[in-house]
Design a protein around this nucleic acid. Structure first.
Length: 879
DNA sequence: CTACTCACG
DNA sequence: ACGTACGTGAGTAGT
């Protein structure tokens, strides 16, 4: 049987692993202060590869040093590179040590690069009839792909591999693997610092290689090329092209002293590896290599709380960890199966919820002096409230972790703890199981797990708080997000009243219309099919009816989205019918039916806001999502079903006008934009005047205003000419002119965009006005797409995030203001820039004044904030 | 469990 | 030259 040979580009993988986690470099250090992030990433990758590939032979090749035969040929080869970071350098010998523990051969050869070692070994292995897998972070190695050799290139750090077979190379580039060197020869390589032919990039290079097959053949037939600048350049740079091809060519005959027989792999030396991982402080890896079976689940000390010893709980000292355990995630109705309470010394657990009714214990828990530390405050507040217990946690560790890094938002304490190097708490999934198998374990295991949670909370608390302080987020945490958790809990518990009859009636009508439309569509198609299936619909439109396919999806299927269908409207009458059917069917299934399913026995909808999910600081809403109820078109009717709780009450909504553009005017410091807002001008018309170079607002046509509005939006999203052009249906050149005009008129906005990208590149994150932070891992990526995305995010996040900050302040203050004014009015919903209330009609005037003053003054910006409000008998009319 | 589509700001 | 708007959640099909 053929062997599978795994060949790994050691330097390249170490490099990728290092940069994948460079933002949290300091979280990966061992007792001696040595960084371990690259070791960690390398190990993860190795672990996965060994399991998936099950190789019988493995070799990790390293570069031997700076000088190689390539630098002898061309002195500037790989010149001008930055020095390797010392934090990575110190890990290189340790990675080799780890490989020794794995029993994996590693090898380097003076004057040769790792690539050449790999190329040489791959050739030998192929000759022996083996299958070869090359793993690297360097695309240039894809030239090695053959029928027997697959080249796996890392994407997204080292998490994922993209496998290059000859077929895949051809699909992707249109040339064969062994033509890659011809392409590189023509285009050169900036990172390896060798030249190609002037003005020839990847596109041109591929075109030429396709045409001529190779550089040699190209120059043999150069006369067949039409006279052009390119031809001149090709002739002028012939020597460079030939030299560059030579530099790009991986040698397959390096004097490698290892043979296939030397690189057999038969599994790790667990003892050696265990010592190594222990020394590196890599507890996760340690557990994985066999520690796992031997090591019992962590054991906590705890006592079961009962009526007999409840007095002991009252002696616990702040900070006190507390939690109500629910195995379902919807805390509005999940069964509460137990609670835990503890301090640094003692932990109590109990499944007897009636203990929480004990008057003394009850008051002790509710006492604001208690400093309760919890995981997911809103969840705990709502669950406790169901037991008539009104807690006000002082510290929510989920929220803290989320503010430190919005990526760290796992709804599981054990998972968060592990990320912070605390390994004494397994995840809920490990203890309870997941999916259908999830269930409460026997008492001993269950109580132990709860006790571990209590102890983890107390162990992690100080570190989280000092980290918040270090990141300047203490105020955001203490004075905004923590209080907001309480406000949101109240909003969710109140819910909003829904009249199911209103929906049911709408549903009946829609059902009738849908049935008629369906028949029309089937008739036009010539047969019945599932209109809801994009696949079947694609077949009907683009094969049966032969309409021109406009666009494909990323998986290569026909796209049938609105944009496509709108373009096809005139081509066939069926298209219009499908569009109408789609619109109605969406309303029917998601809203008319969906909302009725979400209606609770109390006649109300109780959404859950996710306070620790979005990357920008916005809330999101689930189960049901109350932030995407139709606001336009036919679907808007759905809003009629949302009504006040009581007779003679009203629904009242108050929304920030243009909050994101006002934030932009503020943080960019642009005087032109600030003035427009200060003067109370129509910002879109103002922008239209600027970019169309008009003298007076009267000259602004509705279409100009529409385009200007789209441009304003585009700016907020981190504009590109392509995106803007597509959005408003103009040419890319026109879009470019719009943007140029825009930046001329709002010069500081331009500066702001550049500055945010620069800041992100330098420090790895951007911030909102309240110092909410978002890390942008891809900001220095060499992948254009990833990097561009990160750049747009760098521009957008401070804007979207600061707007989120502002409405959150307004919510916390509104909650207090309503209480202070002793109004019956209540806040029910938040939809990003809008707050929705219900109130007795008699309170409307006062409510108007209150929302205006509280929302306007939530924060002091260099421009005024403006609030619009509407009232009505239901949500539809409150707009 | 992923892909597609479409609802919101 | 590269391929694009920013942030979400839910329903349905189809593997």
């Amino acid at each position: 049987m053929a062997d599978t040979v795994l060949l790994i580009d050691g330097n390249s993988i170490a490099f990728r692993a290092f940069f994948a986690t460079i933002n949290s470099l300091d979280r990966f250090t061992n007792h001696a202060g040595v960084h371990t992030n690259a070791i960690f990433g390398f190990n993860n990758m190795l672990d996965i590869l060994l399991k998936q590939v099950e190789p019988s032979k493995v070799l990790v090749a390293f570069d031997a040093g700076k000088t190689t035969f390539r630098t002898e040929k061309y002195g500037d080869y790989k010149g001008g590179r930055q020095k390797t970071a010392s934090e990575l350098l110190e890990q290189m010998p340790l990675i080799k040590q780890m490989l020794d523990g794995y029993g994996i051969e590693h090898y380097e050869l003076k004057n040769w690069e790792a690539d050449d070692i790999i190329g040489t070994m791959a050739k030998q292995a192929e000759a022996a009839g083996d299958d070869v897998i090359v793993v690297t972070g360097d695309r240039d190695l894809t030239q090695l792909a053959t029928e027997k050799t697959t080249v796996a290139v890392t994407v997204h750090g080292v998490q994922e591999l993209e496998e290059y077979t000859p077929k895949y190379v051809e699909e992707k580039l249109g040339i064969t693997p062994n033509q890659i060197i011809d392409m590189k020869g023509l285009m050169g390589d900036t990172s390896d610092n060798y030249p190609g032919v002037q003005k020839v990039g990847e596109k041109t290079a591929i075109k030429l290689v396709k045409q001529f097959g190779s550089i040699e053949n190209l120059y043999d037939n150069i006369d067949t090329l039409k006279t052009s600048k390119m031809k001149e350049h090709l002739i002028e740079d012939k020597d460079k092209a030939i030299m560059s091809k030579d530099l790009a060519t991986i040698r397959r005959n390096a004097p490698v002293e290892k043979s296939l027989d030397d690189i057999g792999y038969s599994g790790p030396n667990v003892e050696v590896l265990r010592d190594f991982f222990t020394d590196m402080g890599m507890k996760g890896a340690l557990a994985k290599i066999g520690g796992a079976e031997e090591k019992p689940a962590p054991k906590a000390k705890w006592s079961v709380l009962s009526a007999a010893n409840i007095g002991d709980a009252l002696k616990l000292k702040s900070p006190v960890a507390f939690g109500l355990e629910m195995l379902d995630d919807n805390y509005h109705n999940a069964a509460i199966s137990a609670f835990y309470v503890g301090d640094a010394d003692q932990t109590f657990v109990s499944a007897d919820l009636s203990l929480l009714d004990d008057l003394e214990f009850h008051m002790w828990l509710e006492d604001p002096a208690r400093e309760l530390t919890v995981f997911d405050a809103k969840r705990m507040i709502v669950a406790a409230a169901r037991l008539q217990l009104n807690i006000r946690p002082a510290c929510d560790e989920l929220l803290a972790s989320y503010l430190l890094d919005p990526d760290d938002n796992s709804a599981d304490l054990g998972t968060m703890a592990r990320r912070r190097s605390y390994l004494e708490l397994p995840s809920d999934a490990e203890v309870y199981g997941k999916g259908a198998k999830r269930k409460q374990p026997e008492d001993d295991v269950f109580y132990n797990h709860l006790a571990l949670k209590s102890q983890a909370l107390l162990k992690l608390r100080a570190g989280l708080l000092t980290d918040l302080e270090k990141q300047g987020e203490t105020d955001l945490f203490t004075n905004l997000e923590m209080p907001l958790a309480g406000v949101l809990a109240k909003m969710e518990m109140r819910g909003i009243k829904l009249e199911p009859d209103t929906l049911a009636e709408m549903g009946k009508n829609f059902e009738g219309s849908l049935a008629v439309m369906e028949q029309d569509i089937y008739r036009e198609a010539g047969h019945e099919f599932n209109i809801n299936s994009p696949k079947q619909l694609g077949t009907v439109l683009f094969e049966d009816l032969g309409l021109p396919a406009v666009k494909k999806t990323k998986t290569g299927n026909y796209s049938t989205n609105v944009e496509v269908l709108e373009q096809l409207q005139s081509a066939h009458p069926i298209v219009k019918d499908i569009l109408s059917w789609r619109e109605l069917s969406k309303i029917q299934s998601t809203y008319v039916n969906g909302l009725q399913k979400a209606l609770q026995p109390d006649g109300r909808i109780h959404t859950r806001y996710l306070q620790t999910l979005t990357q920008t600081g916005r809330l999101s809403s689930i189960d049901p999502n109350m932030q995407n109820i139709p606001a336009r078109g036919t679907g808007k009717q759905v809003r009629k079903a949302f009504v006040p709780s009581h007779k003679d009450w009203i629904i009242y909504s108050s929304d920030y006008s243009q909050i994101e553009l006002r934030v932009l005017a503020h943080i960019s410091g642009d005087e032109n934009m600030r003035e427009a807002f200060r003067e109370g001008r129509d910002i879109h018309a103002n922008t239209a005047m600027k970019i169309f170079n008009l003298k007076s607002p009267d000259e602004v046509t509705p279409d100009m205003r529409r385009q200007a509005k789209a441009t304003n939006f585009g700016i907020v999203y981190g504009i590109s000419d392509f995106g803007l052009a597509r959005n408003i249906g103009i040419t890319r050149t026109q879009a470019k002119q719009f943007i140029e005009g825009y930046f001329n008129q709002y010069p500081k906005v331009h500066e702001y965009m550049d500055k945010m990208v620069e800041v992100a590149k330098k420090q790895g994150y951007v911030e909102t006005i309240l110092h909410r932070r978002r890390y942008l891992h891809d900001i220095n990526s060499r992948n254009f797409n990833l990097r561009s995305f990160a750049e747009r995010t760098a521009m957008n996040t401070p804007i979207q995030g600061s707007a989120a900050d502002i409405i959150k302040i307004a919510m916390v203050r509104m909650d207090k203001a309503l209480k202070d004014a002793k109004l019956q009015a209540r806040m029910l919903l938040q939809v990003h820039d809008e707050l929705i209330f219900e109130a007795p009609a008699s309170e409307l005037e006062e409510l108007k004044k209150l929302t205006a003053s509280v929302m306007d003054s939530a924060i002091k910006l260099a421009v005024p904030l403006k609030v619009d409000s509407h009232a009505g008998d239901n949500w539809f009319d409150a707009k």
